[in-house]
Design a protein around this nucleic acid. Structure first.
Lengths: 192, 192
DNA sequence: CCGCCGACAGTCCATTGTGGAATGTTGCCC
DNA sequence: GGGCAACATTCCACAATGGACTGTCGGCGG
């Protein structure tokens, strides 16, 4: 086919979560707790890592020599530093094309099956989500003000564009689903 | 067998995957294979179910009496029909507000860590994804033509809006990442 | 008529990811 | 000096994924 490298034959052996940890550890040594906080802060809604996963990956990477455990601190605090092998593995990972995104949207599932669901439930679900997305967009636009790092801005911009698209989509939903006529034309296919 | 209350004994006891299967089975009896195909076809990129998961849920729901196994057909084909209890469980599920969507976007992870990644890798990743999204958008717009069911249209519209947003976002990415100046203003914060 | 290839159908398993409960520690406020 | 909130890790059950594996059948070339 195209001979492109995919995650399958990758020589680094990292999953995305492990790679993200190594990425953050480039800045400074951190504990699992710190790493969860950093990821939550920087990528919050479009990438998620969980405590359990983080600690699991850290100890497995420690075993593989990609990170090393530093002196324990207060409260059993256990910082890890990246090693040379870790930098190498991260560099290898970064050379591989990232996989396509996965979107799991239960509301869409519900709408797809909408034919078999009472209208009032559909309406309630849509209204709920509309509110959630509205407030997320507001939050992102707020954050956008004090941002300068172009990499952080890129991620945040994605969030803003995404939320705007979702909101526009809500506005174009047909009366069968929302109970009220669309605010805009279904908008999806026609010109903007 | 402990007395603990888990998701399984919740009012409806369905996870989203199980619920989606019951939803499809409202139309007609289907096999696991058919169900995977139906889900793939209708919700493809924004909801995914896997074979393993489907067969597991089917046999567990058969045990719970939510579906019943019909006569085996050729090639071990094993259709399931929804039961009254299944309809009830689905109705209960449909009354609950769907959870928020989860977006896992490895490219965003890569960009967030972009500071530690050679520019050429970032550029390659972005270009690759741009192509993927461009062709997905084209595919959706094609499909849009022969669609009448408003529920299917709603899902497809989401796809179209989403892909357009992603493409616009690509166009606004800064030179640090793409290697070329943005085609549009970063667009995220300013007025449309 | 036979052999075999490719699409169909289901099973199994390792790994990854999620969510929450349980446990312990420490700083700090009253 | 007691108690509470925030910090930090561990453990576990369950959900979801993806690929390998097995078997079945339909149709086509020889």
């Amino acid at each position: 086919m195209n001979g492109r490298r995919t995650a399958k034959d990758a020589p680094h052996g990292l999953n995305n979560t492990a790679a993200s940890l190594l990425g953050f550890l480039h800045e400074r040594p951190m504990t699992g707790w710190d790493l969860v906080a950093a990821a939550e802060d920087l990528m919050g809604d479009f990438w998620s890592i969980t405590r359990s996963q983080v600690y699991r990956e850290l100890s497995s990477m420690a075993g593989a020599g990609l990170v090393e455990e530093l002196e324990r601190g207060k409260r059993d605090r256990r910082p890890y530093a990246i090693t040379e092998a870790g930098r190498k593995a991260f560099a290898d990972w970064s050379a591989v094309l990232p996989a396509e995104e996965a979107v799991r949207f239960p509301l869409l599932l519900m709408l797809t099956l909408g034919r078999h669901i009472p209208r009032e439930h559909l309406v309630a679900a849509v209204e709920h989500h509309r509110a959630v997305h509205k407030s997320r967009l507001a939050r992102y636009e707020d954050q956008f003000a004090d941002m300068s790092d172009p990499y952080a801005v890129a991620t945040l911009s994605f969030g803003i564009q995404y939320e705007r698209a979702v909101l526009a989509w809500f506005d174009g939903l047909p009366e069968e689903i929302t109970g009220v006529p669309p605010k805009r034309s279904p908008g999806a296919a026609g010109a903007p």
